[in-house]
Design a protein around this nucleic acid. Sequence first.
DNA 1: ACGAATTTTGCAAAGGTTTGCACTGTTTGC
DNA 2: GCAAACAGTGCAAACCTTTGCAAAATTCGT
Lengths: 359, 359
Amino acid sequence: MTGTPDEPTKTGAETYAADAVPAEAGKRRIRNITELARIAGVSPGTVSRALAGKSLVNPQTRERIQAIAREHGFRPNQMASKLRMQRTGVIGVVIPLGHDSRQHISDPFFMSLFGYLADELTESGHDIMLSRVIPGDVEWLDRIVDSGMLDGALLIGQSDQTDVIDRVADHYLPLVVWGTSRPEHRHCSVGSDNRAGGRLAAERLIAQGKRRLAFFGDPRAPEIADRLAGARDAVDGASGATLEVVPTTLSSDDLADQIAANFSKVDRAVDGIVAASDVIAMTTLRILHERGAQVPQEIAVIGFDDLPLATRTVPQLTTIRQDIAGGAKAMVASLMQRIAGVDTPSTVMQPELVIRESA
Amino acid sequence: MTGTPDEPTKTGAETYAADAVPAEAGKRRIRNITELARIAGVSPGTVSRALAGKSLVNPQTRERIQAIAREHGFRPNQMASKLRMQRTGVIGVVIPLGHDSRQHISDPFFMSLFGYLADELTESGHDIMLSRVIPGDVEWLDRIVDSGMLDGALLIGQSDQTDVIDRVADHYLPLVVWGTSRPEHRHCSVGSDNRAGGRLAAERLIAQGKRRLAFFGDPRAPEIADRLAGARDAVDGASGATLEVVPTTLSSDDLADQIAANFSKVDRAVDGIVAASDVIAMTTLRILHERGAQVPQEIAVIGFDDLPLATRTVPQLTTIRQDIAGGAKAMVASLMQRIAGVDTPSTVMQPELVIRESA
DNA sequence: ACGAATTTTGCAAAGGTTTGCACTGTTTGC
DNA sequence: GCAAACAGTGCAAACCTTTGCAAAATTCGT
């Protein structure tokens, strides 16, 4: 049994079959609470209470039942329990925007936020379900939310789905979204003041004497649009400063090529770059290095997010910090309140400039 | 420079309350299939079949029922459905090793593998559940597996839990583990030939004329132990070469400090470093840069994994490539077979040397 | 027009738990 | 010594869907 035929990159598959099942404790497997009840000579209800550690049941009986359960390796079926309890303990985490989900899932920012969310949720005893987003489906969110599988849902980013989100939020309370907060939104969001952040970034470059700025990012996403608006605010307030927008998507695969292409366009006319994210900034940094440009002397680069990665670049990245951990905490706190029925307000966090070496 | 002191960065929460719920489509909300049945004037069974698009039901009736469902935004309860079907469509993804789960969740390697797994699973119509690992609990895996919530489980890494995994694997077929494959294992694993990889790494350094090597990594994890063993193989086969082991944990927070401390110990005696992972290698690179060491002339550094990050460092990282995407594919393929009842063998992939700039 | 074949539909069980209510024994209080 | 309080247990409904089987309705062949 070696080697399946034509698999990518798979070489010399070896076999260590898992036969020879040992012992199995001799006990027959118990399938459900009723069987266990029969064995223990009590009713299913009592077993349920005993296993849940309820105080209503006689300590001796409880211990006996738990012993039997342990001995047979029995654990009550969660699906049935959840159905009955109407509470699943599962929170859905979703990235909107269907096409090419991989790109998004492995995006460092998403991962970072996701990690913190996972922390918070695990801490509060919840499980996390990464839900399937069917590309091009208008009802993606309804499907997730109405499935009856979730106690609540967390969206990472609004993408261009604000209308869908608002519609669902109108009748589904336990929903919290990472993103930009706008007066017209009807859903609860948590995020940074992106416009202020964009302004901070551009102001830093201007303060460093840079005048011909470029913005690398895709303004179709609301957050990015706000960051751009902020940068423009700053530029408009400084005499002689200009800002050129260079659309740059977030997808990381061809990002390097895109940015390289950007430089063919803007070339050395530019002396300061506001990147819409740290990932963009990092890649920009590398390309500048390849082209032999001195950072920050010839061109300064400023990022957005302050991911852990930002300290690992050469030169280390000057960036606009978003408190991702705090944001995750706020999202989960809001969600918990909403699960309890409270209609919580949105949260806007103030970003701050973190000065390192690149600008 | 800009830091707000304690209370981490959170400022000025503003409010946009989500009141004024509009319209709600006038329709009362349907709670279950029986209610819908009453409205449509048919039996619940028929509704179930209609909603599932079964051919046994009259096309007209089916269309009518679906129309009503759509109109009222009704979707059958998944929990009940899954309970009845005894099939959940959910795959559990778990990182063993309880303590400090955050560290692990945000580890770039885990994230990368997780991303690919998510891709594959989503592709095949499965949902993903990131399960809670209760620290210090011997029964963590039993709990997950016996919950009745999962069709199968994928573990990312064996950690030091091989015995637990083997025990569970003895009676639970749909379980596939990323990690090292050893003859004595009774569970199905997918992973690289870590020993071969370690050898490749050390051989490369030796071929570049390096002789005083150091290994940065924590050999308590089996994969790392194998990589170290491979490196030692290579060193033992080269005259005059030495290898010093410097335990370095994977946790990313204090990694930089650890590595800096490493250098105080080994100092300039070392001219080549085998890092147990790309993350360790990257951090090492940065610290070398800070100390003004020329890479690879004075000290060469070689990583392990070939994460996307490896191309973003300065200098770009020479590393041992694991086919993570291929591994994810193999894990999911194996799992699907096992869900279908086939006891698949383990898979061992051959790693390969990717030469860039750092060694 | 009538029985047979076929298509639709309904019934009720099953999937496995939790929990309000009722019931049986014990204690306790007086 | 008797009512009241209480601890422990059992019953059966509820959670909501799916599906095998039987019944009803329709279509078809002759």
